[in-house]
């Protein structure tokens, strides 16, 4: 009974974070800030949802942990790949940006 309630709370938190991540991808001004929101919020949201499902059904707990850790390991790598690729493609930073030491390095 208690694991049901705890799992449902974890799933609810995760689902809200998934929604906030999507909202961030929609609202942020440029690719890099979208990656920030898209990677962080969706990773924690998916992590929390999947672990919550594992807690509700104890026989799936280990399998859900494997999926969650796989997401935890691979999502940052995918974000890094997209970020570097779009920088090399020449996608500009937003006008709000204050500093760009990566571009300075390239020019020298």
């Amino acid at each position: 009974m208690w694991n049901m309630i705890f799992g449902e709370i974890l799933i609810l938190i995760g689902v809200i974070f998934l929604f906030l991540g999507s909202l961030g991808v929609f609202r942020m001004p440029d690719v890099y800030n979208r990656l920030q929101a898209g990677t962080k919020c969706t990773t924690l949201g998916a992590f929390s949802t999947i672990v919550g499902v594992g807690i509700i059904e104890p026989s799936w707990f280990l399998k859900s942990l494997v999926i969650a850790f796989f997401l935890l390991l691979t999502n940052p790598v995918a974000a890094h790949a997209i970020g570097r690729a779009s920088y090399k493609m020449g996608v500009k930073l937003t006008e709000k940006s204050v500093v760009d030491q990566y571009g300075e390095e390239k020019d020298e």
Partner: peptide
């Protein structure tokens, strides 16, 4: 990660988007 997400969530919900991005 939880602290990071609360931080990003705050920036996303805030109507003025309080961000100051850059590459260091």
């Amino acid at each position: 990660m939880i602290k990071a997400n609360l931080d990003v969530a705050y920036r996303v919900i805030h109507p003025k988007l309080p961000i100051k991005p850059g590459i260091v």
